[in-house]
Amino acid sequence: MSVVARLDEARAARRQKTLIAFNAATLRLGGKTIIENLDLQVRPGEFLCIVGASGCGKTTALRLAAGLYRPTSGSVTFDGEPVTAPRREVAIVFQDYGKALLPWRTAAGNISLALEAARVPARERGARIEALLRKVGLPGHAGKYPTEMSGGMQQRLQIARCLAQEPSTLLMDEPFGALDAMTRQGLQDEVLSLTQASQTTVVFVTHDLDEAIYLGDRVIGLLPHPGRIGIELDIDLPRPRDQLATREHPEFLRLRRQLFDFIKATEH
């Protein structure tokens, strides 16, 4: 058997395994059904994007996976175990970086928070912080407070703090929703290169359909009231993705049309 065939087989085997599973997960909050009978499998190493009209429960689904909510009925499992609370190998990148960072701590201090929580000895933290800042493109900003940084830089900082957890899974809740187009494209490519290299599993919630197709191995579209799966698309665009070539690819345009039609049909 050739090396390529064996690699393909290994990849196929990994694809079949499930890291996060929603089994008929239902969540009711305050008498309202936010998510109903959601069945969803996230495979290890995959980049899964969740899209949908606002109020379709995509953020809620992410919070269920994170253990910030617990399902009213059904179950959510991580690596076969029920998710009852957040776990250190799962990191969450929130949309509102301004609220998720500690304003009284510098960039280095904010990353340090994750290292302190993971009981990394104080003398090792400095080097780790420096490496993480370099990784997200913020070298030399260690001493800055979040309020002294631009939105893009703050989001990079939050991502660095999440990477400090050394997570196997990243849950990202519309992380670039508040950023301008140029910053957003730069960060998309950085997240791809950071997560592809380390085989990190990513669940990425966004309302930007192009972004979902550009980033994902798979895109799931949710239907609103209550949230459930309406469409599932496998994205077989070549990697590494490129902001120009990928977005001009005929397959990209076909998927984009399909996804737009789906979203349009859900919005009445």
């Binding site: 910030l68 609370a85 957040p86 990191a91 998720a100 500690l102 957890q165």
Partner: peptide
């Protein structure tokens, strides 16, 4: 900020650490 408590939860910080590092400085 409630978001900070969620950050603390996702980092699995202890109760004492949450008071000392999040609530008190805030």
């Amino acid at each position: 900020e409630p978001r900070l408590y969620e950050v603390a939860r996702s980092l699995q910080m202890s109760r004492a650490a949450i008071i000392g590092k999040i609530a008190l400085p805030s």
